[in-house]
Computed example of a mutant assay.
Amino acid sequence: MALSREEREQFLAEPHVAALAVDEGEKGRAPLTVPIWYQYAPGGDLWIMTGRDSRKGRAIAQAGRFCLMIDRLEPTIRYVSVEGPVTETIPATRELLQEISARYLPADKVDAYVDMAWKSHGEQVVIHMQPQRWVSSDLGAL
């Protein structure tokens, strides 16, 4: 059963690890698909953080859009896939790294991770995407 708008937006707002897919424009190759953290509040844009010159960063810049697919297995099989255009790319800040890290890591691990990542991951960017196309289902509703 498809999720309502409210249900899919609430699910997307939960801290799941997403599968990012983006077309790299190479004939004969499937889209680049990798796991990634994301941030989202219902009704707004979502954002990811990645290296400006990373493979996914370059592919998103070239394509101008990407897709995230988020799923869970318990208590029911549920997923949301959202795709849309890039609306903004800005330099990452330590505060945004702190925000997204706190969404996924235990509180006692966040500061150490942020210190390490800020020093060693190189130049990062935050890429905003406007959700445009949605596919969703909850198989527990059957």
Rank of each mutant, 00 (worst) to 15 (best):
1 M>F: 10
1 M>V: 14
2 A>I: 13
3 L>I: 06
4 S>R: 07
5 R>K: 15
11 F>S: 04
12 L>K: 00
13 A>W: 04
14 E>W: 02
16 H>Q: 01
17 V>C: 04
19 A>R: 15
19 A>Y: 08
20 L>H: 04
21 A>H: 03
22 V>F: 09
24 E>D: 15
24 E>C: 14
26 E>C: 10
28 G>K: 07
28 G>Y: 04
29 R>W: 14
31 P>F: 08
31 P>R: 07
32 L>T: 08
34 V>N: 06
35 P>R: 10
37 W>H: 02
37 W>P: 06
38 Y>K: 00
42 P>M: 00
43 G>N: 07
48 I>D: 00
48 I>L: 12
49 M>Q: 11
49 M>I: 15
49 M>F: 05
49 M>S: 09
50 T>C: 13
51 G>E: 04
52 R>H: 14
55 R>K: 11
55 R>Q: 15
56 K>R: 11
57 G>D: 04
58 R>L: 13
60 I>K: 04
60 I>L: 01
61 A>P: 05
61 A>D: 05
61 A>L: 06
62 Q>P: 09
63 A>C: 08
63 A>Y: 04
65 R>P: 06
67 C>G: 09
67 C>I: 05
68 L>H: 01
69 M>E: 12
69 M>W: 11
71 D>F: 01
74 E>N: 14
75 P>E: 03
75 P>G: 00
76 T>P: 08
79 Y>P: 05
83 E>Y: 07
83 E>L: 10
83 E>W: 11
85 P>R: 13
86 V>S: 01
86 V>G: 07
86 V>I: 04
86 V>F: 05
87 T>A: 06
89 T>P: 06
89 T>G: 01
89 T>A: 13
92 A>M: 15
94 R>T: 08
95 E>W: 05
95 E>P: 02
97 L>Y: 02
98 Q>H: 14
98 Q>V: 11
99 E>A: 15
100 I>Y: 09
100 I>Q: 03
101 S>I: 06
101 S>G: 08
102 A>V: 00
103 R>C: 08
107 A>R: 10
107 A>M: 09
108 D>C: 10
108 D>Y: 08
108 D>V: 09
109 K>Q: 14
109 K>L: 13
109 K>D: 14
110 V>L: 05
113 Y>K: 02
113 Y>V: 01
115 D>R: 13
117 A>K: 03
117 A>C: 09
118 W>D: 01
119 K>L: 12
122 G>F: 02
127 I>Q: 07
129 M>V: 12
132 Q>C: 11
134 W>M: 09
134 W>K: 06
134 W>H: 05
136 S>A: 13
138 D>Q: 09
140 G>Q: 12
141 A>N: 15
